[in-house]
Design a binder for these strands. Structure first.
Lengths: 151, 151
DNA sequence: AAGGGACAAAAACGGCGGTTTTTGTCCCTT
DNA sequence: AAGGGACAAAAACCGCCGTTTTTGTCCCTT
């Protein structure tokens, strides 16, 4: 029981996961312990624990393992800088979706699509428009066509 | 064409929605124009435009009308302060979920569940644990039971 | 204890068809 | 123009069911 390596039992106790889950997740590559003892037994590092804990939270939030896997696959694809997303990134979970916060922006962990728009921004848009009453089309080019179309 | 009331055509042109949609959304109560002319015709206010624009964005982001309605219903339920969520709150959309930012927190607009957890927080948790090696149970009470259970 | 295998229950997924909601279009009235 | 009604196409939803994934449990080996 050193300072920076944990047995499976310990890891399970700390993270709130079952030993069975650790075994399966290891076998399927979700979280693979970084260290092995001489006897070939697994040892979880501190970083491993964080990853496990993150995964546990995602599970508790109702995200299925399958979805977590998908997210990780696409994350390593569109955010290659992060090689251990579960231990590095800020995650927000809602319903069946995982959001990643990266700098000021938020992405869908699955698709990489960015989907943030504070209402304040909308207000500014419409305000601008209001000030230019006569030539309001500039802000919404597509809308301008519609204006003519339905005029 | 005053400064703060817009006809249906204008509203449609500005927001990028079709007049048909405005009519339907009005009829079904999603966004009801706040003003009426003497002749009984609808006039959209500036705030209405913002709401329309927000809804439009949600639609563009792939959120169905039905889901938007659900979100609004539950929003007015667990955030009663906001009586016009579409025109007041910050929304984040990903996949088929709508997130509401309210102060420092984020909620699922549908369930009201709060689901934010920066990884940094997890690291702190585990760090604390590491410093108290001998009595590690305090941080994860549930885990402590497991420790015994699987010991 | 840890690892691994085997088996079964539980959970999650994916596709399909039927139903409801939303939108487009046309027409009529004011 | 705006409102409203009617009809049809498109989009979205819901429930069902067979398949796959995940987990629990038991047993055996080191």
């Amino acid at each position: 029981m050193t300072r920076d390596s944990f047995s499976r039992q310990q890891a399970a106790a700390i993270t709130g996961l079952t030993p069975r889950q650790l075994a399966y997740w290891r076998k399927t590559g979700l979280v693979v312990p970084a260290i092995h003892t001489d006897g070939g037994h697994a040892r979880y590092t501190f970083t491993d624990l964080i990853a496990l804990r993150a995964a546990k939270r995602l599970r508790d939030a109702g995200i299925s393992l399958q979805r977590i896997r998908k997210c990780l696959r696409s994350l390593t694809h569109f955010l290659p800088t992060a090689d251990r997303p579960l231990a590095e990134l800020s995650l927000v979970v809602t319903g069946d979706v995982v959001l990643v916060f990266h700098g000021e922006r938020a992405f869908d962990a699955l698709t990489g699509q960015e989907w943030v728009f504070p209402i304040a921004e909308l207000a500014r848009e419409v305000e601008k428009l209001q000030r230019k009453q006569p030539r309001q089309g500039e802000l919404f080019p597509a809308a301008e066509e519609k204006l003519e179309e339905y005029a």
